[in-house]
Design a protein around this nucleic acid. Sequence first.
DNA 1: AAGAATTGCTTGTACATGCAACTATTAGCT
DNA 2: AGCTAATAGTTGCATGTACAAGCAATTCTT
Lengths: 154, 154
Amino acid sequence: MHVQAILFTFAPVMKKSDSKYCGCLYYSANALSRLMTKMADEEFAVVGLSSSYAFLLMTVNNKPGIQPNKISEEMLLSPSTITRLIEKMEQKKLVERKSMGRTTEVYPTEESLKLDPKIKEAWKKLYHRYSDLIGKDEAKTLTAKTYEVVNKIG
Amino acid sequence: MHVQAILFTFAPVMKKSDSKYCGCLYYSANALSRLMTKMADEEFAVVGLSSSYAFLLMTVNNKPGIQPNKISEEMLLSPSTITRLIEKMEQKKLVERKSMGRTTEVYPTEESLKLDPKIKEAWKKLYHRYSDLIGKDEAKTLTAKTYEVVNKIG
DNA sequence: AAGAATTGCTTGTACATGCAACTATTAGCT
DNA sequence: AGCTAATAGTTGCATGTACAAGCAATTCTT
């Protein structure tokens, strides 16, 4: 306890910036989001995808035939965004749409399924990367807290 | 301690969604960011601005003559983004640029200064809005934690 | 069974943001 | 003084995301 205090006094954690906005959740949430997205995009680059597409594929690979509707819920993105994501992945021959009446089912292609382990691997690396940077427990609690707040607000 | 446990057992917090991604910081940070941005945009709509522009104006109003450079640091946005934001606000006659050599100084117009109290008011309402939703202490600690992580990662 | 409401998905459009490449200016070195 | 390096800012381009409006299919109502 004492040691901690002394350490903090003589060796404070260096902050990169200290904006007048740092007490605002809008600000810090957005800043973190941008950083995490950049980090995720870097990791998923090994499979030639940016983060959103990687998550889309994992979602579809996990539940072949899932409806855009449900993907939207799972990824917390708007239906129109999901349409756009699916379009792009269809162009790349990584998913296929089967429309039946007003509903649509989205299926992974062979290639997407073959890619799946690599995507999951990249995802794991992402996890380790930020966990190493900020501490495993710290990462877990922040993630949980954040998600909890998302559920309260959204 | 015991009471807590019992409460949790018999009255768990109801979650809206429970994605397989909820343990990923990329995912929760992005979700929160989107929600907060939406909320902020709603609040700042009373002054006819979306959130980024409101923050830009507050920054410039607070330090007239500030350089884009410094705005970028304070807002944790890339220089090019700041250029774009300034352009728009210049079109709306809310800021002015004075270029001197390679440096540029950004000044608020009268109108921007007149708008300032309303922007700050909207900002305060934003704060209360999410604080009411998730609890004041909860909001404060999450904001602080998030900002801390931003400093560690960024 | 016909019209109304709802649902699932898509499209047009707009916006926020960043990267990479560029220009212009200043600072540093010799 | 002159060349090089660094810095400040801008621009072209690409991407991710959402809203509003639309279309098509289904369900509800009476």
